[in-house]
Design a binder for these strands. Structure first.
Lengths: 348, 348
DNA sequence: ATTTAGCACTCAAAGAGTTAGAGTGCTAAC
DNA sequence: GTTAGCACTCTAACTCTTTGAGTGCTAAAT
């Protein structure tokens, strides 16, 4: 692989991203930093096509990058743009500050990304998993009717109504509440394993079978907590993008299967995945640009965009990187504000 | 307006709904109960177009009903189909019985409607408004951090985290909890007026200004409660419906603005509204078919579908009517099961 | 040994022209 | 008032042609 060939590949990608039309040898030869004739470029382009980096929609058309071509471009050839300072300021304002709730922080970042990229933005919020359970309450609210309340240190609150077969005496309820509180209080949501909950089900059932709906309710609630929340915003942008198949986009909007896992399993750092490369997430010509943000050094969630493969990587990647870094920073500086002391208070 | 013209209008709507193609005079003349020639029909159709009930996509095409045409058809001309008995049985099974929670009841109805109509189903659940507040709790969960919990007799639970400027002593918290409990417990959600809450804000603030975030939180929660819950299910069906503009549908899916008010302000009984007729809810060629269900004689919520204007009203309207009636019946017979005794139990 | 100019060739996209057919409006007869 | 008949209209589908961007190859130039 020739130095010049790489330069030409980069030029083809840049041109194609800019114009959206297949790129011909002539238009490349006219570029500033290219000083060979179109014939030479034709030869090189033919070679690049041989190698699988470019392809022709039809014989007499210019070349278009293949996803292998994009891959090489992104990994090696591209020179990312800098984000102008005034733009950074604007982003910082959009995001929020130390006092902005974490959920809103990532939400704002998503909004910013949709606006900048005109693509769908995707965020996961795995923050709840880092928190510990700070409170479990079972509150009787009526005849045989109870509400289970689960509160985490990060302020996440889940509740669920439960109907029992029988009414519980104060003693029974007390027993149950204490047992649960003892076993779950202070446990990190991450550690809430199946076994642990199974053990509790067994123990409580042994004491009194009628309590099992309550335990089941708690299991369901902790299930909820463990699940990282995936939000896709601005997905309508994908519909007006004619590189993507409308039907596939619609299917994606309906159920975002696979995406959640894909994000969960991603490495840290910025990442670009193409629809073609993995079948779990199947919008044909799409590209997913994500990065993970961190909280207290641990990966806490992902942030990125879904768009067509023909997207301005030079421009967008720095934005995704900047936003994830900023979010990580804001979440870290926020840490001393987070309450990790579930036992400090007693219910009145 | 001639008897025959009305008959022709009805025939045009029926044919158009059936085929999806503009309807010509010839195809109408071939119909069983029409015994005039196509020329006569042409004359009548021209008249109907003059009157605004029909329109032509272009000069040499058949006619299509305008929304004014649909309106007349629905209000006066249409003969609704009967639902077959076995179908009714199937619906009854899908819905649930006396023991099915109300929320699930309407949810099931929505699912049934999506399945039958291949349109999006929309339900509102105003049931919470009929219930009384059975419990208010303020639970400390960390440094200056409190969770407010509002539970209604119908099992509705709302919560909200609140951060205060200072830590509360047990006494302060007790005072507050008691005050709130005393004032709100047993109050029906419907009666939760602005004034009432304002009075509380004033009273509490007089005692201690720092408590006002809590009162504010409670106000917001009761606001939530009063707001009827709107659920749209199967909205993906609208995307595969080519009469509707995809972009508008996506926008609608993302934020269902206006729909809630539209439903709230609707009269009782079955109702059909067209996207064109009201701008608050703006999917171009859409039609909204809803009816209200009742609980204990009072309107409790709405149930219906959103689809293209070209939808089988003859078939769908009876389904919507049947389901709302059934739900009303189930909710009424369910009434003695509802817990209206918030004071029966004490927190442990 | 590359690089380049030149040229014949290819192919999609756009435009022009044609046809087919469904449907209309009007007129004159019933 | 209704109907048959006919000329007219307009779209959708099809073919034919043209255009031009772009290619690959060859032979000359560096």
């Amino acid at each position: 692989m020739d130095e010049r060939k790489l330069k030409i590949l980069a030029a083809v990608v840049d041109e194609y991203v800019r114009t959206g039309e297949p790129v011909g040898s002539k238009s490349i030869s006219k570029l500033e930093n290219i000083n060979v004739s179109s014939a030479t470029i034709r030869n090189d382009m033919a070679a690049l096509e041989q190698l699988g980096y470019l392809e022709q929609p039809h014989t007499s058309a210019g070349r278009v990058p293949t996803f292998k071509g994009y891959r090489l471009y992104i990994d090696e050839l591209m020179t990312p743009h800098d984000i102008p300072d005034e733009e950074k300021i604007r982003l910082d304002e959009m995001l929020g500050d130390r006092n902005t709730p974490e959920e809103l922080l990532v939400q704002n970042a998503a909004t910013a990304l949709t606006e900048i990229t005109q693509c769908a933005a995707v965020v996961t919020n795995a923050v709840p998993r880092f928190s510990v359970i700070s409170k479990v309450e079972v509150i009787p609210t009526g005849k045989r009717l109870y509400v289970i309340l689960l509160i985490t240190s990060s302020g996440n609150i889940k509740n669920k109504a439960c109907r029992l077969e029988i009414d519980l005496s104060h003693e029974q309820l007390d027993f149950f509440t204490h047992y649960i509180e003892e076993n779950l209080s202070g446990v990190s949501v991450d550690e809430l394993s199946e076994e642990m909950l199974d053990k509790m089900v067994a123990a409580v059932s042994a004491y009194m079978v009628s309590l099992s709906p309550l335990v089941k309710g708690i299991c369901e609630l902790s299930e909820d907590l463990r699940q990282q929340e995936l939000t896709v915003s601005g997905s309508e942008k994908l519909l007006s993008c004619d590189e993507l198949d409308k039907m596939e986009v619609v299917k994606f909007i309906e159920h975002k299967d696979g995406l959640s896992e894909l994000l969960e399993n991603a490495f840290s750092g910025i990442q670009v995945k193409f629809g073609a490369e993995n079948d779990s997430f199947a919008i044909g010509n799409s590209s997913l640009i994500v990065s993970k943000y961190r909280k207290g050094g641990k990966e806490a969630g992902s942030l990125g965009i879904i768009g067509p493969m023909r997207v301005d990587y030079k421009k967008i990647i720095p934005y995704v990187e900047y936003l994830t870094q900023k979010i990580s920073a804001l979440m870290d500086s926020d840490e001393d504000d987070i309450i990790n002391a579930p036992d400090e208070f007693q219910a009145p």
